[in-house]
Simulated assay, not measured.
Amino acid sequence: MRRIAILAEGAFRWHAAKTAVGVIRYSPDTTVAVIDSTHAGMDAAQALQGPVGRGIPVVKDINEALQYQPDTLLIGIAPRGGALPEEWRWQLQTAIEHKLNIVSGLHAFVSDDEQLRSAAASNGVTIWDVRRPPEKARVADFTPHREGSHTILLVGSDCGSGKMSTALDLNAEAQRRGLSSAFLATGQTGMMIANNGLPVDRLISDFAAGLVEEQVLDLSNRHDWVFVEGQGALNHPGYSPVTLSLLHGSMPDAMIFCHKAGQTAIDGYERCLFPSLNRLIEINEDAVSWLRPERRSKVVGISLITNHLNEEDARAAIAQINNETGLPVTDPLRYGVAPLMDALQQHFA
């Protein structure tokens, strides 16, 4: 069990600090402080304007965070470009000098920085670059999963649509029901929470599906339910390749579709408009059927983000999408994932 201080300088907000929020919500480790000088003096829930992070202090810098006796500094946001901002360097250096391990999901590897690597070696601490890919190469060989197991992939309309959190919630709900289940992390935040998984967005494209397949086969041999964290979206102009690798590597038996209520275009690509939700669902189902036409994988429920809406509007959005798609719809944060788990169990009954 780690005692974590999360570095989220200047960006500790619900969407901008997805890694920080995910670790606070789901990690079995204890978050003792969040570093963000722009929200210093608040607790994390006040800064996020929601229910997550009550009682966790937001502090101005690493020196103030050290008062809460962390043993790990975790970088909880992803600056544009994925490099380590120079203005953060002193905070990492100070953390290392105080014997804190470093956990980083940046695209630029902290352990490749000579100054920080030498400091870590001198102080006997570790640097975990979560996105560093395994050296192993494996091409998918289309091996069937164990009969009786159920692999569920989370897909969606965009990045940041709730795929990781819904997978984690479903895994927890399955275990509450006494089912044998596992969560497969495929991104840096999920890996920080689960302490295992694959950084799919850093894998060589020829091997991504194969390495996902290997992990799914291992988990499905040991568990009846496997919830695979999704990445990107098939309709995303930048990140569709990673989504296709997950679809074909995991070969899901069913899918849950994730979406933000009211969103009509890819975030940051305002000209890339969404087709209907039914069409978005269809293209994901079709992509699996290219390889397995005789056993079509279906989307059986929808996870909807409504935290930007009031209660009345949230319920109206859920009802509207239920009417549009004919599928069960819930906001896991507001109402839990029981309707989605019910739909999955009924689908395989």
Rank of each mutant, 00 (worst) to 15 (best):
D113K: 02
G53P: 13
T31F: 07
R13L: 11
A182R: 15
H259Y: 11
S161A: 15
A108P: 00
D141C: 03
R271T: 15
A120D: 02
V155G: 06
I62E: 09
F12S: 06
G41S: 12
R315W: 00
A17K: 06
P332Y: 01
L7C: 09
I24K: 04
S104I: 08
L184T: 13
F12E: 05
G210Y: 06
A317R: 02
I102G: 12
M341V: 11
A265N: 09
P339E: 10
G76I: 02
E213F: 05
A121W: 02
D141K: 07
G55R: 11
A314Y: 00
L73V: 05
L211H: 03
W225M: 12
L280V: 03
C159G: 07
E312I: 12
W14E: 02
G210C: 02
A167M: 01
G160W: 00
L219V: 02
A314E: 04
L66G: 04
N284S: 10
P57H: 09
G156H: 00
T31Y: 10
A16K: 08
K99H: 15
P241S: 11
D71G: 04
I281H: 10
E97H: 11
Q91S: 15
P199D: 04
C159N: 13
D342K: 14
R80C: 01
G187D: 05
E311K: 12
L340F: 11
A254Y: 03
L84E: 00
S149W: 01
D331T: 07
Y335N: 14
H39M: 14
A349W: 06
S27C: 09
A194H: 09
G105C: 06
V155S: 06
C258S: 13
L153R: 05
M251F: 01
T31G: 08
A65D: 02
S27L: 10
D218H: 09
G262D: 05
R132M: 03
D71T: 14
N123I: 01
T19Y: 03
T94S: 14
P144T: 08
R25Q: 14
L244G: 04
L179N: 08
T143V: 14
H98G: 05
S104L: 06
H248I: 01
P339K: 09
H39A: 15
H308L: 13
A338E: 14
P332I: 08
D169L: 06
S157R: 07
G210D: 09
V242G: 03
I152A: 10
G326Y: 00
L7I: 06
A108K: 02
M42C: 13
D201R: 03
I193H: 11
T30K: 14
I281D: 10
P241F: 01
N307F: 07
A349T: 10
L234Q: 08
V288L: 04
G232A: 06
Y68P: 04
G268H: 06
Q93R: 11
W290T: 09
